[in-house]
Amino acid sequence: MGDKKKQKLQPNQQQYQAFQQKREIKRPIFKNCIKAFLIGGLICLIGQLISTFYIYQFNFTEKTAGNPTVATLIFITMLLTGFGVYDRIAQFAGAGSAVPVTGFGNAVISSAIEYRSEGFILGVGSNMLKLAGPVIVYGVFSAFIVALIKTILTQWGGF
């Protein structure tokens, strides 16, 4: 893909892009990774604390505590998104706040809040999954393929 795109460029375009690239401010990849590690780790640690709380207070098991933990994290995300804090955390944390489920929650909730001005049905309803939709679509589709292969192998393959 990248090579095909490059081939289509005229020589003067290639020359300009190289010229430009030398002066581009580089992304601080190492620093960003450290920040993503710390904030991402912190969010998972909070998740673990919440999940431990559910296990000891409400008799959830290790397996079933996952669902209320996720719901609680997304509730907290709603508050942080609504008060305009989550996008600031994200500029610092990058993938650290995008990869945990809180990032998924933020994508849904921020779209819902933003499109409120276009009404509840066509604004909030239609646009809510604009950013998070691909995650659901390809999550479901890839899970279907994986489960299909596994089922065929186990049920008919005799494993």
């Binding site: 401010i25 580089k26 992304r27 601080p28 960003n32 998104t81 609504g82 305009g84 989550y86 996008d87 955390i89 994200a90 500029q91 944390a93 990058g94 993938a95 706040s97 995008a98 990032g103 933020n106 994508a107 909730i109 921020s110 779209s111 809040i113 933003e114 499109y115 950013l131």
Partner: peptide, 11 residues
Amino acid sequence: YPTEYGGQKPP
């Protein structure tokens, strides 16, 4: 993105 969406912007 929506204004409250947390997307990290490059420099």
